[in-house]
């Protein structure tokens, strides 16, 4: 793992993000869409599914929570996206089981499963220097249990504070800390060569 590609100004980024409230919902969505896509892609491992999840989260935020105060948009949006990712993961799992079962009783045995899990980061970001490092990170994060993965993505990658992470995850602050602590421990083992 080569972290030399990570620019030095990234030091302290996690804690340094200033919470600037967007003026309009469109501004908020424009600010958050890229990171939302990356989070969804990391959770789902598929570009099309990730785009669907992000669009659905945007739509629901617009339809149901547009009138809410701007400071609530972030936890609401990430909470919606988190649930959407979970729904898609479950639906995909059921579909894989059904397709696998149908495939096992099929007469010709050709064609294979309809849903083929894509390489999550076959083309993660061609232009970034830390492409391999990001791919390793994404694989390690995807291997985490769901709640640990959510806590890590929201708290560390997106940079939400503990309270907003708890709101987005629908749990207590203490649960967030526990999930995150376990996620960090697991990732440290998986990404040994980051040291």
């Amino acid at each position: 793992m080569n972290l030399a590609a990570v620019p030095q100004h990234s030091e302290g980024l996690v804690a340094a993000r200033a919470p600037e409230l967007p003026v309009t919902l469109e501004t908020f969505l424009a600010q958050v869409q890229r990171r939302a896509f990356r989070v969804a892609e990391m959770g789902l491992g598929n570009v099309d599914d990730a785009l669907d999840a992000v669009q659905d989260a945007m739509l629901r935020l617009h339809q149901h929570y547009r009138q809410h105060p701007a400071q609530e948009w972030s936890p609401l949006f990430w909470g919606i996206l988190r649930r959407r990712i979970t729904d898609l993961q479950r639906r995909r799992k059921v579909r894989s089981i059904v397709v696998g079962w149908l495939g096992s009783v099929g007469d010709d045995g050709e064609g294979g499963p309809v849903w083929e899990p894509a390489d999550p980061l076959a083309d993660p970001a061609r232009e970034i220097a830390g492409r391999a490092a990001y791919a390793d990170l994404a694989r390690a994060v995807r291997a985490l249990p769901r709640r640990q993965r959510e806590a890590f993505m929201l708290r560390v990658l997106e940079g939400l504070d503990v309270a907003d992470t708890a709101r987005a995850m629908g749990c207590s602050d203490g649960s967030v800390k526990t999930h995150l602590s376990r996620a960090m421990e697991a990732l440290r083992h998986k990404l040994e060569d980051w040291k």
């Binding site: 990570v6 990234s10 302290g12 990356r38 970001a125 490092a133 990001y134 960090m184």
Partner: peptide, 13 residues
């Protein structure tokens, strides 16, 4: 780990 992960994520985004 958190700092590097966050930095990589920001760049990828």
């Amino acid at each position: 780990l958190a700092t590097h992960a966050h930095a990589l994520f920001a760049i990828a985004s």
